[in-house]
Simulated scan of single mutants.
Amino acid sequence: MVCLRRVWGVFAPFLLAALCACGSRGCGREPAAEGQKSSLPKEIAYVGRFDLGDSARFAWSGSTIRVRFEGASSIAVRLKVASPGYGFNPPELAYAIRVDDRPKAALAVNPGEARYELAHGLDPSTPHEIALTREAEAFAGIDALLAVELPEGGRFLPVPPRRHRLEVVGDSISAGYGILGANAQCRFSFATERASITYGALLGQALDADVTIVAWSGKGMLRNFDGTTEDTMPELFERTLPTEPTSTWKFGSPADAVIVNLGTNDWFGGGGRPLEIRAFEDTYVRFLHRVREVHPRAFVFVVSSPMLEDQMTPSGPGTASELSRKSLQRVVERRRAEGETRIEFVDLEPQGPNVGCDSHPNAESHRRMAARLEPSLRAQLDR
């Protein structure tokens, strides 16, 4: 069995930096350069949480820009990319590109403002759709889309809506931490983090759903990995830009399904201090009430953590997996006793040897998570 203190020693250096990124007051908004103008066509479809103004600002994992056009053989964007700081290597920052729903090689980006070509050599007589997805998680900072550029003769088209909307609320697992890592020995880097191949993204592809990912490494429901109770996920859930406390999300487009994958850091963290299980469950129930308020039609899936396996925990007799599973089942039972009918607990299998950096789920684990969840989601969404 694995001791949670050993896990703390492995994760602590990175997660303390991630949890403290920008401080509790937020990173703040950088002023636009003098004379700077944006050119954002009204036909753009924004998937995720965006602060729309002169530019489109965003920071959550998996934030996606979808553009459809015709009459052009190429397309480019102007991006302003934040500098992640904390000694991370800027060239590791990347975006995923899909052209006509087929993945292309990752787009490497650098801090600062620059023009990036997303595709060329396309047939101008045929409509095309481009999807540009942020791979890095929230603490990398706030990026901004400044312009989308087509050559002369190109024309933007309305983007057809997906069949469903899915929202994933989670932590490092849902953000894709270490998903490309070769083994558990590698440490965090943006080079191994990929929101576009997480279980949430895979479910979106399988179910024809736009996916919003609201996830930040080290964050918990009651307490974060470092034991703090400030800026937990219930607080961050309310924000458009997670590092700006005053940026309030309006929840204008309710989801059809919500997956809540939280608790890993509540059980793992705390510096060896026991988790107050009743307080954790009370907080979880309150959060599910809030989810129901903002997503009135959604079916809610409360899922277990694949990272909690046979680790011993100071929070009670039994393993972290056993205790957390029973705790989540009690949470769901309490909501049902209150009259909630559109909710289900899904027990994800332990990840076993399928791990990436710092023992986080690798790509194979995420495929298994998606495969486990897909039948449950499909059964509800296809009704």
Rank of each mutant, 00 (worst) to 15 (best):
S83R: 11
L373W: 12
G71V: 13
A12F: 08
G220V: 08
G176D: 04
H295Q: 12
S125E: 12
I97D: 09
F139A: 14
S365V: 02
A140V: 07
K37M: 10
G48H: 04
G220K: 09
R163F: 08
E70Y: 00
Y199E: 03
A147G: 06
A209N: 10
G121C: 03
V332A: 07
L381I: 01
E149R: 02
Y116G: 03
A105T: 12
G227Q: 06
R187C: 02
V303R: 02
I179A: 10
E117I: 13
S359K: 05
G269W: 01
Q351W: 01
L381K: 01
A182V: 11
R66G: 09
A56E: 00
E92R: 05
Y95K: 04
A136H: 14
C357N: 08
F88S: 12
L377H: 08
V2A: 11
H366T: 15
A320W: 00
V2P: 09
C27M: 04
H120E: 14
R6P: 03
G218S: 05
C20I: 00
P124A: 14
D256N: 12
R223T: 06
G9N: 11
G71S: 10
Q185L: 14
S39A: 14
G28S: 11
A94K: 13
A363H: 02
R57L: 07
V77S: 12
G48M: 04
L203G: 14
G200F: 09
E70N: 10
K80L: 02
P90L: 07
A195S: 13
R25N: 05
F139Y: 15
R372Y: 04
W8Y: 08
E333R: 06
L40V: 14
L19P: 13
P160S: 11
V99T: 13
F251Y: 06
Y95F: 15
A96H: 02
K326A: 14
F50G: 00
A76Y: 05
R383N: 07
T264M: 06
D171C: 01
G339C: 12
S247N: 07
F156I: 12
R378N: 01
A191L: 15
S83D: 15
E167C: 01
R155F: 00
Q205S: 15
E193Y: 07
A114F: 09
A337D: 11
D123A: 14
P160E: 10
H120I: 06
N224K: 06
H360L: 08
D143F: 12
F58E: 07
A114I: 04
C27K: 03
L118I: 07
F299I: 07
S196F: 03
T313Y: 00
R336A: 01
S189F: 00
R49Q: 04
L207H: 09
G218L: 06
G23L: 03
P353W: 06
I197D: 04
H120T: 15
F69M: 03
H295P: 04
F88C: 05
H289R: 15
S63Q: 00
G356V: 01
F280H: 10
A82E: 02
E349R: 08
L52S: 02
S304V: 03
L308V: 06
D208G: 05
F301I: 07
L323A: 05
E193P: 04
L19D: 11
K219E: 03
S55W: 12
G48K: 03
A131P: 04
A72E: 08
S247L: 01
F11S: 13
A182E: 13
